[in-house]
């Protein structure tokens, strides 16, 4: 029994069967990659996991509880954090404020009216956010305007914000898309470190095979909305079906 169990999930958009009977099981404390060519339904699947889309059929269980019908913030409070393809951060806020918000969300839940206290007086939040900034190696950027950071830094901040919530499952949607090689390698190292040091399960959607094979312990290949194979990286590399999905019939 994995921490995340996807059973027979199907999703239709008009005439397009985006997902058909997807079954997936992600083991606790592992790194699981979902790969597949363009249009394979990777992002649709991810959106079904976080509450952005509701699948037409099937079930999604996280740690024994169904996530279907819940809103994104409720699912997040259950322990699933998501990193977006283009970093989604609070660009108008400072880096420190960006880091404090998930700390508040973790401590106070989805809403708490604390309109009179000064936010810097919340010692536990400030300490936690500062420690997280140190972990993410960006303590020197504390007072910086988040919008003015580089793409790589924004990505690191976003991952840090997700980790500040101490999620049990971290979902990453092509975290290295559009990144320079050096930034990509930094992100790989960071994710490796996270998965080694923390009690966390990582599910990653990725195009870049270099990233997938350096991180994943288990890989699911998706093509035309259905999983082709699920195996460990060594077996996936030479699998004929995978080559066919990626390169076409004759290859």
């Amino acid at each position: 029994m994995g921490i995340l169990e996807v059973k027979d999930v199907g999703k239709r958009f008009g005439g397009l069967q985006a997902l058909g009977d997807v079954n997936l099981s992600v083991k606790e404390n592992s790194v699981h990659a979902i790969i597949g060519p363009n249009g394979a339904g990777k992002s649709t699947l991810l959106n079904c996991l976080v509450g952005k889309l509701i699948p037409d059929t099937g079930s999604v269980m996280f740690d024994g509880q169904s996530v279907l019908g819940r809103t994104p913030y409720e699912i997040n409070q259950m322990g699933i954090s998501r990193v977006f393809q283009t970093p989604e951060i609070f660009s108008d806020l400072s880096v420190m404020e960006n880091m404090m918000i998930p700390c508040f969300a973790k401590r106070d839940g989805s809403f708490r009216m604390h309109a009179i206290e000064n936010m810097m007086d919340e010692k536990d939040i400030v300490e936690k956010a500062e420690a997280m900034l140190v972990d993410m190696n960006m303590a020197d950027k504390r007072e910086m305007h988040a919008a003015s950071m580089s793409r790589g830094d924004k990505r690191r901040l976003e991952i840090g914000m997700c980790l500040a919530q101490e999620p049990r499952l971290l979902l990453l949607d092509e975290p290295t898309a559009g990144m320079a090689r050096a930034d990509t390698n930094n992100t790989i190292d960071l994710l490796k470190q996270i998965s080694d040091e923390r009690d966390i399960t990582i599910a990653i959607i990725e195009h870049d095979m270099h990233v997938v094979f350096s991180l994943a312990q288990r890989i699911t290949v998706l093509a035309q909305g259905t999983p082709l194979v699920e195996d460990n990286p060594e077996n996936i590399k030479g699998h004929p079906k995978v080559r066919e999905a990626y390169l076409g019939e004759s290859a």
Partner: peptide
């Protein structure tokens, strides 16, 4: 200057991130 005020600015800045940070 309160955490509530910061949340309001966060809403203006990026509601998607706020939603996926477990805040309503």
């Amino acid at each position: 200057r309160s955490p509530f005020g910061m949340m309001l600015r966060a809403i203006k800045s990026n509601q998607t991130r706020l939603n996926y940070t477990g805040l309503n």
